[in-house]
Amino acid sequence: MTDISVVTTTSQVENRSWLLSPHGTEPGTTPSITVDVSTFTAGTHYPNGYIPSGIVLAKITASGLYGPYDSTALDGRQITTDGRIGLLYGSLSVKTGSTKVGGALVVHGFVNAVRLPFQAGSGGITAAAKTALSLIHFSA
């Protein structure tokens, strides 16, 4: 029997308006990472089921996975001085029950800081994060 039931899917239109040029996004320049979904807040970081590109991510010391940069965290995501930080290159779909999702980091390039998805708080761009992202030139 043929199944003709209606299936609903969601999609995300990619918004990389925060990138000022493709520099730093060429093949081989965006390191692959794995994101720990449990470090994100559903209603805040991915209210529509997608973690947006441009969120500031930092490495969790114990697991080696990435979560939103947070200066108050105690798991390594507060450290921004040793190259363990970057901007998420492409939006990530978070399905119900997901614990890990693969992605890529932007670690150098040209970025319009006011267009990043989070200006403050967990995953936001701060003065310390800008300093740690020394290979990214921020405008605005």
Score class of each variant (00 low, 15 high):
106 V>I: 06
28 G>N: 02
126 T>K: 08
123 G>W: 07
55 I>D: 08
114 V>I: 15
125 I>S: 13
82 D>C: 11
59 K>M: 01
46 Y>T: 05
34 T>Y: 07
68 P>F: 04
13 V>E: 10
36 D>H: 01
94 V>A: 08
82 D>E: 13
132 A>M: 01
32 S>K: 09
89 Y>A: 10
99 T>A: 11
138 F>L: 05
50 Y>V: 12
102 G>L: 11
28 G>D: 05
92 L>K: 09
34 T>P: 04
37 V>I: 07
93 S>D: 14
59 K>I: 01
125 I>Y: 12
42 A>D: 08
51 I>F: 12
77 R>A: 01
103 G>H: 03
54 G>R: 09
59 K>L: 00
110 F>A: 10
42 A>C: 07
96 T>Q: 13
79 I>H: 07
28 G>V: 03
90 G>E: 15
8 T>I: 13
83 G>Y: 01
44 T>A: 12
50 Y>R: 13
43 G>T: 03
41 T>C: 08
113 A>Q: 12
46 Y>N: 04
123 G>C: 06
71 S>W: 02
114 V>K: 15
109 G>R: 06
10 T>G: 13
137 H>D: 09
27 P>K: 03
132 A>L: 00
8 T>V: 11
24 G>A: 06
131 T>W: 07
111 V>P: 03
3 D>S: 14
66 Y>D: 02
12 Q>E: 12
129 A>L: 07
128 A>W: 03
92 L>G: 07
55 I>Q: 08
86 G>A: 00
2 T>W: 15
109 G>H: 05
83 G>N: 06
36 D>N: 04
74 L>H: 05
86 G>T: 00
4 I>Q: 14
119 Q>N: 15
93 S>P: 14
15 N>L: 07
111 V>W: 05
109 G>C: 07
71 S>L: 05
113 A>W: 10
134 S>W: 04
135 L>R: 05
51 I>Y: 11
16 R>P: 12
27 P>N: 04
113 A>K: 13
